[in-house]
Design a protein around this nucleic acid. Structure first.
Lengths: 343, 343
DNA sequence: CTGAAAGCGCTTACAG
DNA sequence: CTGAAAGCGCTTACAG
């Protein structure tokens, strides 16, 4: 095992100077830097992370907290995050927690034991962040939930504009002539029935507002049915919704897995999609364009979401740049699962 | 920040004795142990991992190497691994590499920088393990590839019996009366055209053997078409295969995403599934039973695969138990994508 | 069974 | 710009 001591010996410089070179300090002569760097390279020397961490009382890792990991959508962002981090030579440790867990509390705990230099949150609850994030002082990024209004200067956020995108999806249905549109998936917060600001409720809100803009009042009692973001959960929910409101001609599903479960349920009821009923999804799955029928959906740019998040975090860790909040563009994919209403 | 020194001071014992208690050494009096443990608890003391690692020159983490991360199948095992590790209070660091990368070489490198106490490989190439794994001396588990014949006593493996399961899938088609069965997906190793022992080729081999058992010689030139494990890649491949061999009445797709792409391609050619052509998949996706048509497929038990792997690794790390090799049971799910041939 | 002391590989004031 | 020295929080022979 080759150590900093060996490099010092070989180079003729002191351990201190070698350390300075390793850490890219500016107070080293060009000559020393070059010599030491070349020796490091030729000896294939890797600084002992444990020792560095011990001194700095911080690890060189970045902790990623994934909340609600069953989502293929988050998994695919996670993958891109890992790849991007790898390109920058950074290591991450990943912590999956349930949709019902508290991601901020988890981060606090992880922070104590693993001492990361920053956090990336994939998914999360606005309430948790608003109430508890002040406990965290490390540079962090929240992906999927807009943190612009939370007032933390160490928390950036990158999101799709869920409200606008949902409105866009619903607008496509309206354009085709649909007036009786149901909404499937997610759930309304149980905290006094108020909307919590997460992507679920933002999508619902965007859809409802778009309907209202076109003079349609949305009846939650009749035309909305909650369910988890999976085909399994959507299957019975879709059935229930359509039996309650058989005159619906289109469904806005809060994500693609929900749309898949719904389409299956409708077919099992003897309804063709899109001739009998139209369905629009929201990105959650990559191969919607190979489903039968090809699913109309909103495509989020997971690669960009991940890339921006990583780059922003690393930049802020290195240079203390201020936190930012950015919306990443989305796209409507037409598919074959919608058609003008026949009723 | 509370350290071992504080605990020593409060307890009246020396740092050495406290350290012994922390590390569960036997050479401590019951009295000292109890007192120190109670103080540790009441002070909520957490030993500094970095310092421990520095001394022991090893981290407390387990490294997970995921090869070919685009697979939803591996991601879902990863998730279960993470959950299981969490239950045991263990941390993991995850490294995603491309399908074309060398997972063993990656592990060697990770081993140098992160000093994990063990490895879990999710996916991998038999060749890499056979040729390079001797460089790794840490307890390891290979999931998805059978390592029984590799001859390493620090490498366990947990797998689905891909060959047998593929034979089972093909047998279902044969039972329905199919004789002209095509195979779609994966690729033959380019090393002198030989089979490499991975799940891809095992599935192909299982399918081919089952056909032969029924007196059918499989013509690779005509009835096999390689493609990556995605709907995107399967779509054109399926089209190509069926144009070349239009008399095929059934397709064995090497995984579910491939099946999805194939079904889409067949429909686009004007062929109904299953009336025009039957398709069987192989577990890769969770909601096959909500697709249209519901996909006939082999279901692997990802939860069990993950659970066994984690438990085995931790056991071996703690007690040096010997490596084991186990096949996890699978299941055939009937679906609606197969029917007796009409031609 | 217990404690004093050395040392793991690094970083960082401090002094020059 | 450079080096000698202290110290990060722990573990582990060694001596008793």
């Amino acid at each position: 095992m080759i150590t900093i001591k060996d490099i010092a010996q070989i180079s003729g410089y002191s351990i201190s100077t070698v350390s300075r070179v390793i850490n890219n300090r500016s107070d080293v002569s060009e000559k020393a830097r070059e010599k030491i760097e070349s020796i490091i390279r030729e000896q294939n020397y890797q600084p002992n992370e444990n020792a560095r961490m011990l001194k700095q009382n911080i690890s060189s890792d970045i902790s990623v907290i994934v909340r609600g990991s069953k989502s293929i959508f988050l998994e695919s962002i996670l993958e891109e995050v890992q790849i991007r981090m790898g390109k920058h030579g950074e290591n991450i440790n990943v912590h999956f927690i349930a949709e019902t867990d508290d991601e901020v509390a988890t981060a606090v705990q992880v922070g104590q034991t693993l001492k990361p230099k920053g956090f990336i949150f994939l998914g999360g609850s606005a309430d948790h962040f608003r109430e508890e994030f002040s406990q965290i002082s490390l540079p962090s990024v929240l992906v999927t939930v807009d943190a612009a209004d939370f007032g933390y200067d160490n928390l950036s956020s990158f999101t799709t504009d869920d409200e606008e995108a949902a409105a866009c999806a619903v607008n496509m249905l309206l354009k085709q002539g649909h007036r009786r549109i149901g909404i499937l998936g997610g759930y309304l917060s149980d905290r006094s029935g108020e909307f919590e600001d997460n992507y679920r409720t933002l999508r619902i809100r965007g859809a409802v507002k778009e309907l209202e803009k076109h003079g349609i009042r949305f009846d939650f009692e009749k035309d909305y049915e909650p369910c988890a973001f999976s085909a399994e959960s959507a299957f019975p929910a879709a059935d229930k919704l359509l039996r309650r409101s058989p005159d619906l001609t289109a469904i806005f599903a809060l994500n693609d897995a929900v749309a898949v479960g719904a389409i299956r349920a409708f077919r099992d009821m003897g309804l063709d999609v899109p001739r009998g009923i139209s369905v629009v999804g929201f990105n959650g799955v990559s191969y919607v364009r190979y489903l039968n029928p090809r699913l109309a959906t909103i495509r989020q740019d997971t690669a960009k979401l991940a890339r921006k998040s990583v780059d922003d975090l690393l930049l802020r860790i290195s240079y203390g740049s201020p936190a930012i909040h950015e919306k990443i563009p989305y796209e409507y994919f037409g598919g074959e699962s919608t058609a003008p209403p026949s009723k």
